[in-house]
Each structure stands twice: as C-alpha cells, then as structure tokens.
C-alpha cells in the first residue's frame, strides 16, 4: 500500500499544480475538483473517513460548484508581467514557509493526550463515533460557533447582494436526473445522519449531500427561485442555529453546564440537534449557491 499512498500523494500535488496554474478557468476548477477527490481518498488512507466524506461533499463538490458558478461572473484580471524580483521573492517565501511547516511536523514530538481523554469519556458521550462525540458533545461550543460563522457568511452575501442572473436551466435531461437523484440524496442524508452516531457520517456530510440534490433540482429549471421560497430557506437556515442555542440554554438550565447534556439522555439530545443542523446546513449551503436575495 506504500506505493499506492505515494502515488495518491503525488497525484494530489499534480492536480493542485494543474488547478493553480491552468490558463483556462474551467480547466482550473475541474482540476480543483479532481484534487478534492484525491485528497478525500488520501484522508481515507490517513484514517479520517469522517473528514474525507466532508471534503468530498463540501470541499470538492460544493466549493467546485461555487467556483464554477462564479467563473463567468468574476472578470479576469489583466495579466500584468510581474517583476522577476517578485517572482523570486514569492517562490523563496513560500518554499521557506512550507519547509518550516514540514520541519516542524517532522521534528516536534507531540504527546498524544487527546486519544486517552476521548476514549475515557466516549461511553458517557451518547455516541460511539469519537469524531461525532468531539463535535457535538465535548467541543459542542465550537460547532455552535461554526454554525454561526456559516450564518454570518450568508449575512455577508445578503448585504453585498451581487446581481445573480437567473441560473439557466440545464436542458431536458436534467429533470429526470433530478427526479431520480433527489430522493436518493434524501435517503443518503438520512442514512449518514443516523450512521454518524456509530460510524463515519454526521450532520455536515448529510446536509451537504441534501444541498447537492436540491441544487440538481434547481438546475433542472423546474423550481423557480421565488421569493417566499428563499424566505422559507432562510428561515430553515436560522432554525439550526436557533435550535442549537435553545438546546445550549436548556442544557444550562438542566445541568448547570452550557451544552452539558443530562446524563443518559445525551444520544437523544445529539440526534435532535443533528437533525435540525442537517436541514439548516442544507438550506444554508443552497442559499450560498443561489444567493439569498435578488437585487432590484
């Protein structure tokens, strides 16, 4: 497997170079998508299937869709010839920074204190997947603020309001495709959400997949982005953050610790929060793609 890993690692670098230095933007985004999938594969090899799933769905899929959407709208910068000194300086600096990171990662001996703590507390966390336990129990605070960041991004876009020309429908084959794919994504999202308790999966991956299915339906041209539809989506986006905050306050009242779930009921709390988060993340990601409002 060593050969396989080395080939994957080299392929990641090659795809990244293609993505960063391609002349054509569409080719660059395509290479970025390929790189995302290769990176997901290598993270699977590094023993992080939860992160690999999220990278494949969000990092490669949705970010790629966002970049592709904007590729035609953001004008190209005029290619001014940079002075050679700047090229040299940039090359030296980036080499120095990445070399320092490499050196630090190789030299510094890290004492692994977390695995023992996580293993010790895992039985009382309510779930068996350690990553879900960290995300929604031990460090649930971080996740609450992460949802807030996602919502802040949505707010930035709503304030900036770039003109979103109506996303053109993609032809007659797209509707049958969406008809098959959307039910499958709902099924998959439910599966991933439930599976997150004991195996790789969880709210983020499920929400991203749901958003992907909804974008496919949107691109078929059958669902017009009407105003109340967006308002409903925005309401759904707030719902996740609201439910999380309410849960945090309720837990504070019940146990005296913010987001410290009552003993024995942690699984139910986590599942309830995750279900709200899945819908909310899907709505937020969809709004990030289609834009939260149209400017008049």
């Amino acid at each position: 497997m060593m050969l396989f890993d080395s080939v994957i690692a080299a392929a990641c670098l090659g795809a990244a170079a293609m993505a960063l230095f391609a002349r054509d933007r569409i080719a660059a985004v395509a290479a970025f998508l390929v790189m995302g999938l290769l990176v997901a594969l290598s993270w699977l090899r590094l023993g992080a299937p939860d992160v690999a799933l999220a990278e494949a769905a969000i990092g490669a899929g949705l970010t790629g869709a966002l970049l592709l959407r904007s590729a035609r709208r953001v004008p190209k910068a005029s290619a001014k010839a940079l002075p050679p000194a700047q090229w040299l300086g940039a090359a030296l600096l980036s080499l120095a920074v990445s070399g320092a990171i490499l050196w630090t990662a190789l030299i510094v001996e890290t004492a692994a204190i977390y695995p023992a703590l996580v293993n010790e507390a895992l039985p009382e966390s309510g779930v068996e997947n350690p990553v879900t336990a960290v995300l929604l129990n031990f460090r649930a605070w971080d996740t609450l603020l992460e949802i807030a960041v996602l919502f802040a991004a949505l707010a930035v876009i709503a304030v900036v309001k770039p003109v979103h020309p109506r996303i053109a429908p993609l032809g007659p084959m797209m509707l049958p495709f969406a008809r098959v794919v959307l039910p499958l994504t709902i099924f998959l999202a439910g599966h991933l959400l439930w599976q997150g308790g004991h195996a790789p999966g969880g709210a983020f991956q499920a929400g991203a997949i749901l958003a992907g299915g909804a974008i496919a339906l949107g691109l078929s041209g059958m669902v017009r982005p009407i105003r109340w539809g967006r308002a409903a989506l925005a309401g759904l986006a707030i719902l996740g953050l609201g439910a999380f905050v309410v849960a945090a306050l309720a837990a504070e009242l019940l146990t005296g610790a913010l987001l410290g779930y009552p003993a024995g009921a942690a699984k139910a709390w986590i599942l309830a929060i995750e279900s709200a988060l899945t819908l909310s993340i899907a709505a937020t990601l969809l709004l990030l793609f289609i834009g939260p409002a149209e400017r008049h």
Partner: peptide, 19 residues
C-alpha cells in the same frame, strides 16, 4: 448505489456537455 449514481451522472453530464 455507487454504480447507479455513476451511470446516471455520467450519462447526464455527457448529454449536457454535448448539448
């Protein structure tokens, strides 16, 4: 499920690109 999704999305993207 993987095979089904690859077949579906491959056919649809092929059609879209050609169109």
């Amino acid at each position: 499920l993987c095979t089904l999704l690859v077949a579906l999305s491959g056919a649809t993207t092929g059609h879209l690109i050609a169109r």
